[in-house]
């Protein structure tokens, strides 16, 4: 992974990253381009796989007035691109403990207590526009407000908690946390797999155990069981 080795001008592009002009091979992501050009970058870099949400950037492409939000590790460099790394702390204003919701009957009331802003959604569509994963956030919030948590959570499957919708929400709803709440209550109250429960019981009673003494014998035992 030596980014300095390559030096083919015909395959390079020039772009601006945090006001620094940088030339880099066009096969690189903007983070790789920064490294290639020898600029240190430590914060705002995470999994490099597009799922941790730490590398959100603002991008203005050449000849465009539009400014988009994307994930730097997933963004291929382009000629004339202008990129700004946004590294800001965005703590959620909402706090809750699943174990304090007594039954699934209480979820809806609790939701509105924890997220009182959610029903104030003004439907500006900003969250949908800003989401680098293309999630229908506004609908997700709507569904949660209506108490349809399973459906709401399903919309947030690909959410990486980059918090862009949070900073983009004029009503301070914290939409990604609404989505995560929806997902969590669904798992917490409605996932009761019988195969898992049976196995837990068999382990509790000692019916299932592991013998570490001898590999041969182990195979036989296993054969008998199945």
């Amino acid at each position: 992974m030596n980014y300095e080795k390559k030096n083919q001008t015909e395959n390079e592009v020039t772009l601006t990253i945090n006001a620094e002009q940088i030339t880099a091979p066009k096969t690189l992501s903007v983070i790789q381009a920064l490294w290639h050009a020898g600029y240190p970058r430590v914060k705002g870099v995470g999994c490099l796989d597009g799922v941790c949400g730490s590398c959100s950037v603002m991008v203005r492409r050449a000849d465009s007035t539009e400014l988009t939000m994307e994930l730097g590790c997933q963004l291929l460099v382009e000629e004339g691109m202008d990129v700004f790394f946004s590294v800001f702390d965005t703590p959620s204003q909402h706090s809750y403990d699943l174990s304090e919701i007594n039954t699934s009957w209480d979820v809806q009331t609790e939701f509105h207590r924890i997220f009182p802003e959610a029903e104030k959604c003004r439907h500006c569509g900003g969250c949908d526009k800003v989401c680098p994963k293309g999630i229908s956030i506004e609908s997700g919030v709507d569904l949660a407000v209506k108490g349809r948590f399973r459906e709401s959570g399903e919309l947030f499957v690909e959410c990486v908690m980059c918090n862009l919708c949070m900073t983009g929400c004029p009503e301070f709803i914290d939409p990604n946390h609404v989505g995560l709440f929806s997902r969590r209550v669904t798992g917490y109250f409605h996932t009761r797999p019988s195969n898992l429960i049976n196995q837990l019981e068999a382990i509790r009673t000692g019916e299932l155990d592991v013998d570490t003494s001898d590999d041969e014998q182990v195979t036989v035992m296993n054969g008998e069981k199945s």
């Binding site: 603002m58 400014l67 946004s86 003004r122 900003g126 526009k129 800003v130 983009g168």
Partner: peptide, 14 residues
């Protein structure tokens, strides 16, 4: 900021 243009809402927030 009204929210409909993310660069405005997010930008002013930043």
């Amino acid at each position: 900021s009204c929210g409909q243009c993310p660069p405005c809402k997010t930008g002013t927030f930043y």
